[in-house]
Amino acid sequence: MTSTTAILREIAARLLSSGAVEMVIGFRQGTIPMMNEPCFVRKPDEVGHLVWDSHCGINLANYLTDRKEKIGIVAKGCDSRNVVTHILENKIRREQLVVIGVPCRGMADKRKIAMKCPGEILRVSETATAITAEGEGFSRTFEKADVLQHNCSLCIHRNPVIYDELAGDLVEEQQGVDRYADVRAVEEMTPERRWKYFEDLLAPCIRCYACRNACPLCYCPTCFVDESRPQWVGKGQDPIDVRTFHFLRAYHCAGRCTDCGACERACPVGINMRLFTKKLEKDCRELFDWEAGLSLEARPALDQYRPNDPNDFIR
């Protein structure tokens, strides 16, 4: 049990027994290794379910939408930025929340680990810098830095941006990270090459919508892909429909996405759809000097008019 887990349980028990919150949202051990699942704790004697390790990649802000009760939410850097976005978009009120911040050192990519192991992984343990995966007849230890999720290796907001409680010391933010090397590579392609690149990128998509469901931004009561009157986009595997879904979903996340990686993590076929949201993130940063979810005071890029907004593309 990591010390963070112990602190989280202590905080959760205190908040629940004092009545400060009615529910704490955190993580518990999943039924298979490296797949921790969301956990809703309502009684102080249930806090023993809560855990914290390198497999808490799910974005818990997803579970706050339109809740009415007082909630304690466990939030790493990206979760806290999505909590801020939720508050700005009136999906939850700040007064309802006790944010239990967890300074984060990145989450492990279960695919990277699984690919480096010769068989099914049955047990996983970790120290501060290493992760050990064990199975039938093998045991492999990895440097944590080598098996981080791609978005975590590029993260520059590891500490929660808002918090009322803190489960551990603040960590040092990564400096000098080149966040957009992959986006630039796509930008430099010719239109023909880029069209082909996205064709290949999206070819395996089975339209399961796991990316949408895992995303804390995708809270619309009826998603545009589920509308049948009018039916904006076909339901099948047609490449044009697949493309429409991914491009439109990305645009709905413009200026809101925190690159938490929940979409890519949830994808059963391993599509890097973060490439789309990252392009929009890059544009927001370069054109509007905007990064999502950093402050409760600033208004989002799409919600604010400035006379000097770039408009050279309009004739």
Binding site: P191, R194, F198, R243, F313, R315
Partner: peptide
């Protein structure tokens, strides 16, 4: 997303700017 540059255009034309509309539509 791989659409050729030049296939997508943006313009802001008031209902009073009929000549601008003609020019832009032609272009």
């Amino acid at each position: 997303m791989g659409i050729e540059p030049g296939r997508l255009h943006f313009s802001w034309i008031s209902s009073a700017e009929s000549t601008k509309f003609v020019t832009v539509a032609t272009q």
